[in-house]
Design a protein around this nucleic acid. Structure first.
Lengths: 148, 148
DNA sequence: AATTATTTAATTGCGTACAATTAAAACTTG
DNA sequence: CAAGTTTTAATTGTACGCAATTAAATAATT
């Protein structure tokens, strides 16, 4: 009665889209990280930055942006907040003053040990078999390749 | 040399996580909607609200929030912006003044026809077979069920 | 070498997200 | 029915996310 039949277009229904489950699942997964990250005074994107720095110790803003698919408009203020907490340092590359080098500091390194159990704890909440996990990761990677 | 071997924990590598591909794919997909939504002066979450209103014509803020997994802190200002564009109206339910009824207005209904080709165009960009599409949607739904 | 083009971050402005609090209305219960 | 509880939105404050612009440094080209 509210909705004339002609207007119910199946492809326009929320549940038939891919976009909404992706959008919602992403937010819910981020929220699921919250209790663990909160203990470390970290936000989720800050955690992603640390994942990269734990691997590489020093990266340019550009390199971080390429890996995380984020631009300086997002990264610059985020990195400044992380700098204020002494997790990392920001300085211009002397060899090329355009670039800013982000270097992991001891306090940032110290977070690694505290965070090392987070992935397993999250994985547990998802109740995915290793096969499902891999399939999902592969599909998401495919989407990323198509869109990025 | 920058990274001592002991510190390279495979589960802490970005590419081995599920979280990052999900987070990035969601953002990239939203960005892929942008050119289409921009023509309609819509943002992505506003489009999601309209998807629901096109189906139901009138919904409470609470119902919208339950479907979209968003709270009033996000929805209230978003809906006010949509109200300013005469796409919807906001009014208290006379029968229960706690609730706010969101009703689709003609201008909001008019957007439906203009938006009806968006899902197919996006789907094309993803180059997923129907089987893959369904599998992915099911997996994301599983995650949502586990986390929401 | 001087001019132009490109690269890199920072800045600005807007719109989400979301935790936490507030406030009003409706419900429950003694 | 009065007091306390619950429900619903709104508000407040912080942190992204991103388009668009700006500014500085470097590279490329004449």
């Amino acid at each position: 009665m509210n909705t004339p039949p002609a207007s119910v277009n199946p492809v326009q229904q929320l549940e038939n889209q891919l976009c909404f489950p992706l959008y919602a699942a992403s937010r819910m997964l981020t929220k699921a990280y919250q209790p663990y990250l909160q203990e470390l005074d970290l936000t989720y994107p800050q955690y992603l930055v640390l994942l990269l720095l734990w691997e590489h110790d020093e990266l340019t803003v550009k390199a971080l942006g390429e890996q995380l698919l984020l631009d300086s408009g997002t990264l610059t203020p985020l990195l400044k907040r992380m700098e204020q907490k002494y997790w990392l340092s920001r300085r211009r590359d002397p060899a090329d003053e355009r670039m800013v080098l982000i270097r992991l500091l001891p306090a940032g390194r110290a977070l690694q040990a505290q965070a090392c159990h987070i992935p397993a704890q999250l994985l547990e909440k998802l109740t995915l078999t290793p096969t499902e996990f891999e399939a999902l990761r592969r599909q998401l990677q495919h989407i990323l390749t198509q869109l990025a």
